[in-house]
Computed example of a mutant assay.
Amino acid sequence: MKKILLLLAFNFIVLLSFGQFPEEPLKKHKPIPLFFLDSVLIDQIDLINFDPDDIAVISMLKGQFAVELLGEKAKNGVVYMETKGFAKKRYWNYFKSKSIAYSNLIPKVNEDNSIQYILNGKILKRDFEGDLASIKDDTFKTIKILSKRDLIRNFRINNKKYGVLIVSSAPSPSFIGQNPL
């Protein structure tokens, strides 16, 4: 009986000595912010399902403003992202509210393939959805519909039927001190 107890004690000591203890204490995880995609709260792991080329806008909220806006759960910050499709719906609705001519020209959100957007004199060719979606009442100045003739004469664009000329002042930094939601 003594032999069995001694053998068990020996095995226990051997197992303890070969057990895996970390050489360094486990590092603390960095705080993880809240993630929103198209105004929907998502988990960080969900981000792997999205193509980065489809993201139009990324904004961050930090500090007391984030907590005031979303509560204590936002104490580590908030990352707010919009896809190009979501941003497009936002600027389409906004421009419709500013121009009856725009609303008549583009009655549905995805019917602007024959339209050339021009922002502050710059021809927007690709990845412009975030720029247009960032225009708000405090930055918006004018919107004007251009004919094909005006597009060719003023901008040398001949592959679009119409132009949408938008004039805006520079936007303030994205969502800092503002409500993104």
Rank of each mutant, 00 (worst) to 15 (best):
M1T: 15
K2S: 15
L5V: 12
L6F: 14
L7Q: 14
L7V: 14
I13T: 10
I13M: 11
V14P: 06
S17R: 09
F18G: 05
G19M: 11
G19R: 12
Q20D: 11
Q20Y: 14
F21C: 13
F21W: 15
E23P: 08
P25N: 11
P25L: 10
K27W: 08
P31N: 07
P31Y: 00
I32Y: 01
L34W: 00
F35D: 02
F36C: 00
L37N: 04
D38I: 00
S39I: 01
L41I: 01
I42Q: 02
Q44A: 06
I48K: 15
I48H: 12
P52R: 08
D53A: 08
D53C: 01
D53Y: 04
D53W: 02
D54L: 02
A56K: 01
A56N: 03
V57I: 14
K62W: 05
K62Y: 05
K62E: 09
G63S: 03
F65W: 13
F65M: 10
A66V: 01
L69T: 09
L69N: 07
L69K: 13
K73Y: 02
K73C: 01
A74H: 03
A74R: 03
N76G: 06
G77M: 05
V79N: 09
V79I: 15
V79Y: 07
Y80L: 05
Y80R: 04
E82K: 11
E82R: 12
K84Y: 00
K84H: 00
K84F: 00
G85R: 05
G85K: 06
F86R: 03
K88A: 05
K89R: 12
K89S: 07
R90D: 11
R90Q: 13
Y91C: 08
Y91G: 06
Y91I: 07
W92T: 13
W92D: 13
N93V: 06
K96L: 08
K98C: 10
S99A: 11
I100Y: 14
A101K: 15
S103I: 06
S103T: 08
L105H: 05
I106N: 08
P107R: 11
N110P: 11
S114K: 14
Q116I: 00
L119S: 04
N120V: 01
G121N: 11
K122L: 10
I123Y: 02
K125A: 05
K125S: 09
K125N: 11
D127M: 02
E129V: 02
G130M: 01
D131Q: 13
D131M: 09
A133M: 00
A133F: 00
S134N: 01
S134P: 00
K136I: 04
D137Q: 03
D138A: 02
D138V: 01
T139K: 06
F140D: 00
T142E: 08
I143W: 03
I143Y: 05
I143H: 03
K144H: 10
I145G: 07
L146F: 11
S147E: 07
K148Q: 13
R149H: 14
L151P: 06
L151C: 06
I152V: 15
F155T: 05
I157G: 10
N158F: 05
N159V: 03
K160T: 03
Y162E: 12
Y162C: 09
V164D: 10
L165K: 13
V167Q: 15
S169L: 11
S169T: 14
F175M: 07
I176M: 15
I176R: 15
I176K: 15
G177N: 09
Q178M: 13
